[in-house]
């Protein structure tokens, strides 16, 4: 390129630069330190209806009387003052310049959606210029929409348990951290339910793994329909274990929900001849409730819920055990109830 430029005469170099400018599929305006237009490419001519020959050596103000937004004017001023580049996003400014989609009609038309970048250019001879780049933002908005729906699908797959369609462990971990933070910040109660299917291994041995999978799916669906609040989060924790976050639920609230869940699973009436405690599928439930989170870490509450579940298993299964994290006593772990 450099070699070629040396071969070209000055007018030829100018012609080349001009043709490159005009081939670029976005708007380019070069202004000097007084705000007068030095260059103006074909894209701008087309979208403004003002030819380059007319625009050159006129100020933007006079070319677009009343058509420049205040934000655009102050951006130009600041870019030249601080010699730092400035962007005006379409999100916040929509259409700073009176440019229109093609074809331009004499009728009233909506302005083109624009994204603008203003770059100060300082030459070594202390001449300072400003380059204004304008792109048609409607294109990037469309692209963004496509990317977004794609990433939504991807992220949905990443947080869903493939078998039951419930949220997976990863989703639970994320949400649990958020809810824990919220409870701490707002000083509101938080309950965590951990439950598992009684004698599930025996069920698999008796009826086979595909049947076991169907039980898990049915249980996930039932649990979900029993949770009325959109803020409650059900997730498959692993194997035959499920976990439920109940934000803003205290001792009684969590217990009522747990009782509903236990009865609903009994109500499914799925035969389980290998069970030692009933002739149908049942669940054991452990609840950890924090009335007011002081210093409890996520791991603590999870561990407490796990211990509650363990105690439900050892207390005969098909039952509920609740542990309450005491208020203002972060040193002593918990007090048992029921």
């Amino acid at each position: 390129m450099f070699h070629l430029m040396q071969k070209l005469s000055f007018p030829e170099q100018q012609e080349l630069v001009g043709k490159i400018w005009d081939s670029i599929n976005s708007g380019l305006i070069l202004i000097d330190s007084t705000g007068k237009v030095l260059f103006w490419n074909e894209w701008i001519s087309m979208h403004s209806g003002i030819p380059c020959e007319f625009a050159v050596s006129r100020s933007l103000e006079s070319l677009f009387p009343g058509g420049l937004s205040a934000a655009f004017k102050s951006a130009i001023k600041n870019a030249s003052l601080h010699k730092l580049p400035i962007v005006l996003s379409n999100a916040l400014h929509r259409s700073p310049l009176p440019l229109y989609p093609l074809p331009i009609t004499p009728l009233e038309q909506d302005r083109l959606q624009q994204s603008i970048a203003i770059s100060p250019i300082a030459l070594s001879n202390e001449i300072s210029l400003c380059l204004i780049q304008i792109t048609d933002a409607s294109l990037s908005i469309k692209r963004e929409r496509v990317l977004q729906s794609y990433s939504k699908r991807m992220s949905l797959e990443a947080v869903t348990d493939a078998l039951t369609g419930s949220n997976n462990r990863r989703f639970f971990d994320e949400r649990f951290a958020v809810e824990l933070g919220r409870a701490q910040r707002l000083q509101i109660p938080l309950s965590l339910i951990m439950l598992d299917v009684d004698y599930f291994k025996r069920y698999n041995d008796e009826y086979g793994h595909p049947a076991g999978d169907r039980v898990l799916i049915a249980i996930a669906q039932t649990l979900k329909t029993q949770l009325n609040r959109t803020t409650d989060v059900l997730a498959r924790y692993g194997g035959e274990e499920f976990v439920i976050i109940l934000p803003d639920s205290g001792v009684d609230g969590a217990r009522i929900v747990a009782e509903k869940l236990r009865s609903a699973i009994i109500g499914l009436n799925i035969p389980h001849l290998a069970s030692m405690i009933a002739d149908h599928v049942t669940i054991s439930i452990g609840i950890a409730t924090c009335q007011s989170l002081v210093n409890s870490a996520a791991a603590d509450l999870l561990e407490i819920a796990d211990r509650a579940l363990y105690s439900a298993k050892h207390g005969g299964r098909n039952c509920i055990r609740q542990l309450i994290v005491p208020e203002l006593r972060p040193d002593s772990k918990f007090a048992a109830l029921s």
Binding site: H82, L84, P85, V87, S89, N90, A91, I141, E144, Q148
Partner: peptide, 22 residues
């Protein structure tokens, strides 16, 4: 808002960074 996030954050960052740099 998500679909405008990229651009709008660029502008927000640009305002804060430029103010600090200047």
């Amino acid at each position: 808002v998500a679909e405008f996030e990229q651009e709008a954050m660029c502008e927000l960052g640009n305002i804060i960074l430029n103010a600090c740099l200047s």
